[in-house]
Each structure stands twice: as C-alpha cells, then as structure tokens.
Design a protein around this nucleic acid. Sequence first.
DNA 1: AGGACGATTAACT
DNA 2: GTTAATCGTCCTC
Length: 212
Amino acid sequence: MGDRLTPARTALGRAGLVVAPRLLGAVVTSDVGGARVAVRITEVEAYAGAEDPASHAFRGRTARNDVMFGPAGHLYCYFTYGMHWCANVVCGPVGEATAVLLRAGEVIDGLPAARARRPAARRDTDLARGPARLASCLGFGRDTDGADLLDPGSPVRLAGLRARRPPGVLAGPRVGISVAIERPWRFWLAGDPTVSAFKPGGRARRAPRPAD
DNA sequence: AGGACGATTAACT
DNA sequence: GTTAATCGTCCTC
C-alpha cells in the first residue's frame, strides 16, 4: 500500500519550518482503544533534519527516528523521560527528516475519553496543553508510530491543514532543548488558553514576535 | 556491558 | 522556585 497522493500530502512536503504555522487550527483525530478523540492544534514546533542539532534526526537515521526519513504525512511518535510519548507530523521530501512537534491543542471531540486518559488535568484546557499531554489525550504510543495521517482508514488522521499561516500566530524559541535555542521555531495561536505558558525572562531569551 | 541523558510532567517547598 | 519519576536509545568502553 503506497501513500495516497493528496493535495495535503503535497502541502506537507515542505520544510517543517514552513508547514508548522499552517498546522495551527488543523484537527488531529484518533480512533484508538475504542475511543475517538479530536484535538485542534494550537501550538507547534518545527524541527529540521541534518542541519538542526536539536532534531532527533541530526545524528542520522536510527530505528527510533526511521519514520522521520520517510514520506510526509506520517506520525512520528517517540518515547521520552522513561514515561512520556510525544508526536510529530513528518514533513518535507523523503530523506530530509524534517518534522513538526505537536505541542498543544484544544480537545474538541471525545472529552470523556480525553479526561479518562488525563486524570491529573484539572481543567479541560489543560488536557492537551503540552506535547506529552496532547499525545496522551489522543492515545498515541508505539502503536501509532508511523501512522499515515492522510489515509482515511488510519487510526490517526489530520484535517484542516491551511495553505497559509492563519492570522494571530506568534513565534518564539523552542522549549526543552539545549542547542539551537536561538531559532524562533515554536509557533502558537496568540491568546489561546491551551497554549503552554510562555516564560518571558526565564529560559526564553527573546520576546515573542509576530510570525508575520 | 555500562552509563548518561532526554523535543516532560506532576508534585513538592 | 525545585526535584523525583522512570526507561528506551545511543554512545563509549
């Protein structure tokens, strides 16, 4: 089964830096574990391949990052800190290993299932506020690594990718990395309550600026 | 075979 | 503000 060649696949076949802001407002829907949950994306981060020291692909292809080197439109799930899963949308041409980390979103369908998966969340706006929280809400894990987001029969799908970045997008440094922190490759929807807290004057060294 | 560390979170003081 | 939790992955010996 080859990948379906769709307009969305073509649109995702660009650098993660270009695709990232266009994913804001798009919807990821998962059907795993007997529940449907959908999240509207509000915060993302771009990662490049060989030229980005913060990228999992920086040191070449391995069993873990294999999906990143494949075709655009697939989900790259990885396990970190011994307990959390996070997920990226693979972008770019085959072999480039450029991707977009899904950092936060708003649960717009399957609220009961999302709450059950995230018992620690005190408010619904916290359910998918953070990359591991978002992945948890959607039931992401080893089973969803490599899922084709553009296949209607896939357990995880993406809809609503925009042709241009929507209005109200801000950009700033990426979170939780120790290299290439000067690149403002994190994008989010200004004022959205599901975006993770920005810490001006803290770790971040640059104020958010309009992404244009 | 061994060890350092991580694209994080929740629970502390 | 700090720190424990917890283990797969990757690098070094």
